[in-house]
Structures are given as structure tokens and as C-alpha cells.
């Protein structure tokens, strides 16, 4: 999700044409590389879940010996996403950051910090799956998985490794003209260092089981909880759908339909029935009354048509 944000913001800082279109190219480039390392991650995670029959990270740990291939691929993908050269993510992220740098410093700063954060959380994931405590999963009846599971993993891993060398800026640009991109080591150093810092911190905290994470969590307090709850965004959604839309709109709509709109139709029918009940009295069964009505009918017609309408 956070990577998609990256691409979007790259599109946002991009201007049309020439050198200014770097953001656009970068975005597309990142989309391209992202496809590989993200699918490696997912596939790897899938393989892990297949093995441990759970998708809760707390059930995992120390799997690097049990599933070596997955381990390697996962590591490559993590390095790629963290933007460590020469993995693919480095190149595409580089383009984006350059574009941001030329466009707006504040945005650039935020993007930069995110780089570190990304590296941190990816490696937290990596360590808690493959390192941390010793595996709790005992010898299972199947190992890492069949060949058909491994081959795609390997292919994707290789791609994550190499996709950065594809000269995409030559092909995909905002105005169709090829764009020369070059790596400036000075500029690249900062994000890479930040990423390494993130990785280092993750290593410190999560490589082996220790109490450090909990200590930090309690130090950060509210912020950690908010983040843990995904900044409560899901709750807000749930509140809007459950409380406002369901109770506030859906239920009244259904109620109105049943009781007012449909009620009106039924009311029409009932009124007809009531009137019918009411006029029943005229049919008394007495001939003298019938004669009276008969006569009244004649008088009525006579009055209307002779005096009123003539």
C-alpha cells in the first residue's frame, strides 16, 4: 500500500515533458519493479503460510533453515523494496526521489523518511519469519513445497534482482521522447543510508527474540497503538458503513419503503374497502327504501339537469 502511495506521489510531482517528466517515468518504473518484488514477497509469504498453516506472524520464526529457497527470495525482495543497490527498487525509487527533490523539498523529506520506515518494517517482517526464535514448527509432512512452488519464486527473485537494469526511461516517458537517467552517487547515498539504518534497527530489534521491542513500544505509547490499529482508518470505515450508512440510510430507506411507500398503496386498497363497508347500509333489503332511492334519483337528476344546467 505504501508503495502505491509512492507511485501516486511521483505522478503528482511530475510535470509534463522532457526532464520534468521524470516523476512520470519514475512512477512507471517503480510500478514495474514493484510488480516483481511485491509478488516475490506475496508468493514467499504464501509458501510460508502453506507450511505453518497460519498467517499470524507470531506463529512463525526461524524458518530460514526449513525453507532456504523462500528465504533467499524473500531477502532479495526485501532488499529491493528497501531500495538497496543494486536491487531493482533502488533504481526506480531513485528516479522518484530525484523528481521529488526538484519539485518540492518538503515532499522530498517525507519520501526520504518513508524509505527508512519501509526498510524497517520489511525487515521486521523478514526477521520475524525467518530468524527470531527457533522454529516452533516441527517436522511437517511436506517440506518447503514442490518444485512447482519453488520455480516461480526463483524467477521472481531473479527479476527483483535485475529489473532495475532495464532501461525503462528510454521507453516510457510522459511525452514519448527517451529520457536519460543517471545515478548520482552523492544523491543516492542519503536514501540508501537511511534504508540501511532502518534495516539495522530492525536487525537490532527483531533478529533474535528479546524484550527491546516491547520496551520501545511502551515508550512510544499512544503512537504505537494508533499505528498498531492502522491509524484507526478501518474503524472509521466500519463506523461509517455500520452506523451511518446501514442505520442512518439503509434502515430508514427500507422502513420508508415498507411502511410509507408501500403503506400508501395498501392504504388506497383499505380505503376502498372501508367505503365499500360504509355504503353497504344502502342495500337494506326493504323495497320501500328502494323506491325512495329511485324517486330521489329522479328528483336529483331533474334538479341538476333542469334547474342547474339548463
Amino acid at each position: 500500500m505504501s508503495q502505491i502511495g509512492y507511485m501516486m506521489f511521483a505522478l503528482g510531482v511530475s510535470k509534463y515533458g522532457g526532464e520534468n517528466g521524470l516523476g512520470f517515468t519514475g512512477s512507471m518504473f517503480h510500478l514495474f519493479t514493484h510488480a516483481f518484488f511485491k509478488s516475490s514477497l506475496f508468493l514467499g509469504a504464501g509458501a510460508v503460510i502453506h507450511l505453518v498453516h497460519s498467517n499470524d506472524m507470531r506463529d512463525m520464526g526461524g524458518l530460514r533453515k526449513l525453507m532456504p529457497v523462500t528465504h533467499i527470495v524473500f531477502l532479495i525482495a526485501c532488499l529491493a523494496i528497501a531500495g538497496i543497490p543494486p536491487f531493482s527498487g533502488f533504481f526506480s525509487k531513485e528516479d522518484i526521489l530525484t523528481a521529488a527533490y526538484h519539485s518540492n523539498r518538503l515532499v522530498y523529506t517525507v519520501a526520504l523518511l518513508t524509505t527508512g520506515l519501509t526498510a524497517f518494517y520489511m525487515f521486521r517482517l523478514y526477521y520475524s519469519i525467518f530468524w527470531s526464535r527457533n522454529t516452533t514448527v516441527q517436522e511437517t509432512h511436506h517440506g518447503e513445497g514442490t518444485l512447482s512452488m519453488k520455480i516461480p519464486l526463483v524467477i521472481l527473485g531473479i527479476c527483483s534482482l535485475l529489473a532495475g537494469f532495464v532501461p525503462i526511461s528510454k521507453w516510457v516517458t510522459s511525452d514519448g521522447a527517451a529520457l536519460e537517467t543517471h545515478i548520482e552517487p552523492g544523491f543516492s547515498a542519503l536514501p540508501v543510508l537511511l534504508a540501511l539504518g532502518g534495516i539495522g534497527m530492525a536487525t537490532l530489534l527483531y533478529k533474535s527474540e528479546n524484550t527491546l521491542p516491547r520496551t520501545i513500544a511502551s515508550l512510544l505509547g499512544g503512537f504505537y497503538r494508533t499505528a498498531y490499529k492502522k491509524f484507526y482508518i478501518d474503524e472509521v470505515y466500519l463506523f461509517i458503513t455500520k452506523k451511518i450508512i446501514f442505520n442512518g440510510i439503509g434502515r430508514p430507506a427500507a422502513w420508508i419503503d415498507k411502511n410509507i411507500v408501500d403503506g400508501f398503496m395498501n392504504l388506497l386498497a383499505n380505503i376502498t374497502g372501508r367505503i365499500s363497508e360504509f355504503i353497504r347500509g344502502f342495500q337494506s333489503g326493504k323495497v320501500q327504501n328502494y323506491a325512495l332511492y329511485f324517486f330521489a334519483g329522479i328528483i336529483g337528476l331533474a334538479v341538476v339537469f333542469i334547474y342547474l344546467l339548463n
Binding site: I245, F246, I249, G250, A253, A254, D257
Partner: peptide
């Protein structure tokens, strides 16, 4: 709009489709 919201509250599959 109203049809869509009214549908949301239905519990019977046929009512859902009808609304």
C-alpha cells in the same frame, strides 16, 4: 439510490435481488 440502500437492509436473498 434509494433502491440500493433499501437493498442493503434485506435479509432474504430474493428480496435482495428484487430491491
Amino acid at each position: 439510490i434509494y433502491g440500493a440502500f433499501a437493498t442493503m437492509m434485506q435479509k432474504d436473498l430474493k428480496y435482495i435481488n428484487a430491491y
